[in-house]
Design a protein around this nucleic acid. Structure first.
Lengths: 208, 208
DNA sequence: TTCCTTACGCTACGACCCGTAGCGTAACTG
DNA sequence: CAGTTACGCTACGGGTCGTAGCGTAAGGAA
């Protein structure tokens, strides 16, 4: 969460965990009301009932604060077994799309990614707090599909890892692009079309 | 380009087209040096050798200015006939990836998209200036593939349009996500893997 | 040419946010 | 108790924002 590890110093007044929670909650509320660009540290401090200096003691700035405030939203994603690979893909697509409907997520995600193009430490923070944690969904879905016999088990471990990364970028990228760039809704129909394309490919989806 | 149409008023001193070009060029240069978040209107004005008030006479703010400054970069994309659908896809993926390697493009694209989530007019500006213009590549590639016999001609016109939009979101989304979110390189190997996945689908690409 | 209209450069301005310093006080440890 | 760290508060210089006001420049119309 915050920058410094509280266990490093066992003496002195401990940091208020209530303040941590209040700050992150206030950050999400401010994102909803004001959006990324108009969100200010002063506003978050006021909403959280906390002094501005307290924010700077824990986060280097707006970028880091917002990443931590939004990261928890992505942990809500899960992949219940829906019986087939196609159903699992459709399900996660719709779930991810619902997350991107939330104003705090949509305004923050692209903004921090944009900032991360010029800030290595921020990019690593995004990776560890958001991106890498969601790759579990791809791995889980693949294992299930392999167990069902829908996908083969792969021999080369590094090739399998590259493949998982590729699938992750394709699914997440398509949903993000559809939602935020094209600014069109991800509904059940789109999810089905995308799933067909992903499973069958261009020619195969056309034939179906 | 600018906000007001110069042909609307035929009297008075005309706007300097040289200033327009200088401002957009200065904006790109400032994006390279400072990035989106540290770019200021004052800095752009100074670089362009123009008064700050001149900027505000043409653009409502930083968002609109940057969209116009970056839009021209995307028009460089083209789709030469490489002989097969797979080769065409690989080619456009690598071309788009090269564009996203340019610092002015990568820092600006995600930032304006993030802003557009709370600004309808900005979103329309992005669509007309950037997104919609690039869908020509999908349409062109599909026509060629159909002429080669690699894809069927589609009967339903609206279904064909939805399909083109889907493919656009999948290709552009995957490249953007790989480059900016996962922050991994789009090299020839990745482009080939992605192309196989797009053409053959999950099971098909695994078998190949 | 003269008049009209619009664009330009320049200066100045209030408003706002940034990030930090300094201080007294609060909370926890040994 | 003393020692250490966190907190709230105030204040500050520095920077950007977007606009107003002014005199001047560059075109078109009579």
């Amino acid at each position: 969460m915050s920058d410094t590890d509280p266990r490093a110093s066992r003496t002195g007044r401990p940091r208020s965990t209530a303040a941590d929670a209040a700050i992150l909650e206030a950050t999400r509320a401010s994102l909803v009301d004001l959006g990324w660009s108009k969100l200010t540290m002063s506003d978050v401090a006021t909403r959280a009932g906390v002094a501005k200096t307290t924010l700077y003691r824990r986060w280097a700035g707006k970028n880091e604060l917002v990443v931590d405030a939004v990261a928890v939203l992505f942990d809500e994603l899960e992949l219940p077994d829906r019986g087939s690979l196609a159903a699992d893909v459709r399900g996660v697509v719709l779930q991810f799309a619902a997350l991107l409907e939330r104003p705090e997520a949509r305004t923050a995600l692209m903004a921090v990614v944009a900032e991360s193009t010029r800030d290595d430490s921020l990019r690593h923070r995004i990776r560890s707090a958001i991106v890498d944690r969601q790759k579990r969904l791809v791995l889980q879905g693949r294992e299930r599909a392999q167990a069902r016999g829908e996908l083969r088990y792969e021999d080369d471990a590094s090739a399998a890892a590259r493949n998982a990364d590729l699938i992750f970028d394709v699914i997440a990228g398509a949903v993000v692009h559809r939602t935020l760039v094209s600014a069109e809704p991800v509904d059940a129909e789109w999810a089905s079309g995308f799933t067909s394309l992903l499973l069958l490919g261009l020619a195969g989806a056309q034939a179906a």
